[in-house]
Simulated assay, not measured.
Amino acid sequence: MVKTIGLLVVLSAFFCLKGSAQSSGEMLFGDTSRRGVPFSKDPHVVRLNGHYLMYFSIPPFDGNPDPINGWAIGIAKSSDLVDWEKVGEILPEGDYEKKGLCAPGALVIDGQVHLFYQTYGNWRTDAICHAVSSDGINFERNPTNPIFRPTGDWNCGRAIDAEVIRFKDRYLLYFATRDSSMNIQMQGVAAAPLNTNFNREDWTQLTDEPILAPKYPWEGRCVEGASIIQRGDSLFMFYAGAYNNAPQQVGVAKSADGILWERLSNKPFLPNGDPGEWNSCESGHPHIFEDEDGRTYLFFQGNDDFGKTWKISKREVLWTANGPKLIE
Rank of each mutant, 00 (worst) to 15 (best):
T204F: 09
T177A: 09
P217I: 04
P214T: 00
L206A: 05
E209K: 15
Q248W: 06
N197M: 11
T177G: 07
A192Q: 01
A192S: 09
L260I: 09
T207E: 14
F198T: 03
Y239V: 00
D257N: 15
E262M: 07
A240C: 12
K215G: 01
S180E: 07
I211Q: 01
D202H: 13
R178V: 02
I211H: 02
L260Y: 12
N245F: 12
A176S: 15
F236M: 05
N199G: 15
T196V: 01
F175Q: 07
D257I: 09
G188D: 03
D233K: 14
A242H: 11
I259T: 09
T204G: 03
R200N: 05
A190Q: 03
D257K: 10
Q205R: 04
Y174E: 04
F236G: 08
E201Y: 07
R221S: 11
P210T: 09
A256R: 13
G251D: 08
Q205G: 03
N197F: 08
L212G: 04
Q205Y: 03
G241Q: 08
Y216Q: 10
S255K: 10
G188P: 02
L173F: 02
D202Y: 07
C222V: 11
S180T: 06
A256L: 13
A213C: 04
F236C: 04
I184T: 15
G220H: 06
I229Y: 04
G225H: 14
D233A: 13
L194P: 08
I259D: 06
I228D: 09
V250N: 13
N199P: 00
D208E: 15
N244G: 11
F175Y: 15
T207F: 04
L260N: 15
A246Y: 11
T204R: 15
R231H: 10
S180D: 02
W203H: 07
M186F: 07
Y239E: 00
N183W: 08
L206G: 07
W203G: 08
P247K: 02
A226V: 04
A190P: 00
F198G: 05
I259R: 05
P217V: 08
A213Q: 12
D179P: 03
R200C: 04
